[in-house]
Amino acid sequence: MKHPFIQAVHHIAIICSDYNKSKHFYTQILNLEIINETYREERDSYKLDLALNNNYVIELFSFPHPPMRVSRPEARGLRHLAFGVPDLDKAVAHLQAHHVVTECIRIDELTHKRFTFFADPDDLPLEFYEL
């Protein structure tokens, strides 16, 4: 059934503590494409627009001294960001080759699909879910 007014998820905004480290992670390790990078002098802030398969997906922000946010265990709010991957073993090997620690591969009890969790440089929980 078509939704009456929401067409799609437009983007996900992420605030990082170390812009260069997070930019490297999302562009060089996860291989997201840079659409646009803007430095906003009045806010002392970078905004990096990233795409996945030519679709705008993530806004990566830097701000001076952003407050910490509890994300685990099972804290209220956004739980994690999941990326669909065609070959989970290959995706995990890619992360591990870049020294990104992954959890053991698990199987979704409802769909019987395989998945694993890992974290970005600010410990934001991310997931690879096998399509």
Rank of each mutant, 00 (worst) to 15 (best):
L48V: 03
D87W: 02
S45I: 01
L60R: 01
H112M: 14
N55I: 07
E59P: 02
S22N: 03
L52D: 04
H10W: 10
D120T: 02
H11M: 03
V100H: 00
P73V: 11
L60A: 03
R69V: 15
I14P: 07
L124V: 06
N55A: 05
I12M: 04
A93F: 05
V70G: 12
K113L: 13
S17D: 15
P64E: 12
A75T: 00
D44C: 11
V101I: 15
V100D: 04
Y56H: 10
V57E: 08
F117G: 11
F63L: 13
H24L: 13
F83D: 01
F25W: 04
H98D: 03
E42T: 08
A93P: 02
N55C: 03
F83G: 01
T38V: 14
R106L: 13
D87I: 06
D44H: 14
E33S: 11
I34E: 14
F5W: 04
N36A: 08
I14N: 10
H65F: 05
N55Q: 11
M1L: 10
Y46E: 05
N53E: 08
F5R: 03
L81F: 15
H10L: 10
K2E: 04
Q96H: 13
F61W: 14
P67G: 09
Y19D: 01
H10R: 12
P66K: 07
V57G: 09
N36C: 10
R114H: 12
K23L: 14
F61C: 06
I14G: 08
A8W: 03
A75H: 02
R76T: 14
T102D: 05
Y39R: 03
K21M: 09
E33H: 07
E33G: 01
R79T: 05
I35R: 13
